[in-house]
């Protein structure tokens, strides 16, 4: 039985199932997020939280279940439409940044805009603006191999925000950073997202990272459960 999504939700998922071979990664998971909301998806390693994120972002299609984004059924879209959506409406931050090592930092940040067809100079100007906000504008001409992990992650955050996405997906964004750098990245990330009114799906297993969220969801054995925030 499916229930109606919470009113005003930007992105919802119902009864998602996804298996990789014999391994069941998601087993009836539900999810919803409102514009401007930061939701932390928590759970132990292998619980299915990254798979949930990949399904929500249209990176992998679920085996069954429904994903609705802004009134459209994401799970029914073909790959080209999902890709277009990811280019224009979504932003991504991964654990290791996944910056293209050959491009300079500013080129990396400008890349999503360029993929959307923006001219290079214009894209790089916008990229530099985001790099300033994330305090890494001095690294513009450096390559990822020449900057620290924390700096690289801030560049990755700038890249995720440069298209003014409506939803940001962050998969263990501070997993490779020390606590000081991790906190700084999270502060900048969530501030920037809130000021842009972007929803953030934050996958983490660290409570101190989850503390930056408005709401927490725990995934265990492929099932999700909303947590009451204890203040």
């Amino acid at each position: 039985m499916t229930t109606a999504p919470p009113p005003g939700s930007l992105l919802t998922a119902e009864n998602l199932r996804k298996a990789y071979g014999p391994t069941l990664a998601l087993d009836g998971a539900d999810f919803s997020i409102h514009p401007g909301e930061v939701v932390a998806v928590m759970g132990p390693s292998g619980s299915g939280k990254s798979t949930l994120l990949h399904c929500l972002a249209g990176i992998v299609p679920p085996d069954s279940g429904t994903i609705m984004y802004d009134g459209q059924e994401l799970s029914a879209m073909n790959d080209a439409r999902r890709s277009a959506l990811r280019r224009s409406e979504f932003g991504f931050v991964f654990q290791f940044g996944q910056l293209v090592p050959e491009l300079t930092c500013v080129e990396n940040v400008a890349l999503p805009l360029r993929l959307n067809g923006r001219p290079r100079k214009e894209a790089e100007r916008a990229a530099l603006g985001w790099m300033e906000r994330l305090e890494v504008d001095d690294l513009a001409k450096k390559r990822p191999g020449e900057v620290s992990g924390g700096q690289g992650q801030r560049v990755a955050v700038a890249r995720s925000l440069v298209t003014d996405p409506r939803v940001l997906f962050a998969d263990e964004p501070t997993g490779a950073l020390d606590s000081l750098n991790g906190e700084r990245v999270m502060e900048l990330f969530t501030d920037a997202a809130r000021s842009a009114n972007a929803a953030v799906v934050l996958v983490t297993h660290e409570a101190r990272v989850a503390a930056y969220s408005d709401r927490e969801i725990v995934v265990r054995d492929g099932k999700s459960r909303d947590m009451e925030r204890v203040v």
Partner: peptide, 13 residues
């Protein structure tokens, strides 16, 4: 592979 996958993840054709 990983880098290319992430490029596809954020919508690279």
């Amino acid at each position: 592979r990983k880098l290319l996958s992430s490029l596809v993840a954020f919508g690279t054709r």
